[in-house]
Design a protein around this nucleic acid. Sequence first.
DNA 1: TGTACATCAGTGAACGCGCGTTCACTGATGTAC
DNA 2: TGTACATCAGTGAACGCGCGTTCACTGATGTAC
Lengths: 186, 186
Amino acid sequence: MTDQPSYHHGNLRRAVLDAAVEAIAEQGTAAWSLRQLARRAGVSHAAPAHHFGDKAGLLTAVAAEGYARFADALEAAGDDLHDTGLAYVRFAVEHRAYFEVMFTPALYRADDPEVTAARDRAERVLAAGVRGLAAGERPEDERTAGLAAWSIVHGFAHLWLSGALSGVGDDPVEAARPVIRLLFER
Amino acid sequence: MTDQPSYHHGNLRRAVLDAAVEAIAEQGTAAWSLRQLARRAGVSHAAPAHHFGDKAGLLTAVAAEGYARFADALEAAGDDLHDTGLAYVRFAVEHRAYFEVMFTPALYRADDPEVTAARDRAERVLAAGVRGLAAGERPEDERTAGLAAWSIVHGFAHLWLSGALSGVGDDPVEAARPVIRLLFER
DNA sequence: TGTACATCAGTGAACGCGCGTTCACTGATGTAC
DNA sequence: TGTACATCAGTGAACGCGCGTTCACTGATGTAC
């Protein structure tokens, strides 16, 4: 996340992170090695370990960056919970590598402070959206509404990523629109 | 799936499958090898490959068995879509290894006939539940209702498995109840 | 401005290890006569 | 019922390979004087 310019060969940290995201998007979260990433990034095979320690360290950086970008995307969607929901689905689809790592905590150190800070920020954006919509309801109803909203967008996104929604067309964000509307506009 | 009694050492195929499910539940879908499974099952290291060919073959068998058990669980829940939804969440929580493999098609051969047959059966149960509930509505509304129902239970289950719903208590099935109710009973 | 030194990102050869795969084999079961 | 043979699930030694890790190094940059 610190994104310092590196000394000898441009920004190696950035290059390795990008290679990781690329490899995960192509091959999933399992089928890659630090050496493969180094080859992809055009650096020595020892460089990734030098920067990140091990795979979990690298994936922790991916998760932290992912949650930060995710929070940015949700914030940019504005105050309407529908739009926040669509932004949630759009992020998952457009950044599937980040999304898959973020929601597979067995892969990384989920208690890393940078990760928890970025994740908390994303959750605060979602919670604010729900509060705006369920204002005046009883606290437990607001909580249920929040869980329902989170579940429906997350479920839609994950089902689409897993290929289960093949009959839904090639624009998952548009396909999500009536589904999200159904939850709150009746 | 065929579950034939094996010749020399009891049911080796079954033993390897059980070891795989156990290992995946403990360590995730990535951090295991065929040799490790063989050790866990107490068989020679060549046995898993003998039966399943490779990791993808083994995971294809896990996915097929998972979808079959999943369809059984949904069928057993009866005609009420709420109960089907709760059964969906319960299956994910109680059989997380199967569930995670099933919805990560990059891990296995998703076009395997046994897999597609079991998956189609599960989807038919879900579709029937939605039809019972959305009867008389326009086709596209029924489709939207089906997507919404599937998304909300899948999202809740996946969020819980990923540890994101830590504030929800230790009984995810009970916690899912009001969330599912919110979708259809207003 | 110039020189000498310290720092440290990144290198690359070397290592030991667990992996998947191969392959000749063993031995229990099923079948033919 | 007994014998001889075929089948094939499962074994275990051996292989070559890519992996993560170590470690002495290189060389560009930053700093002190």
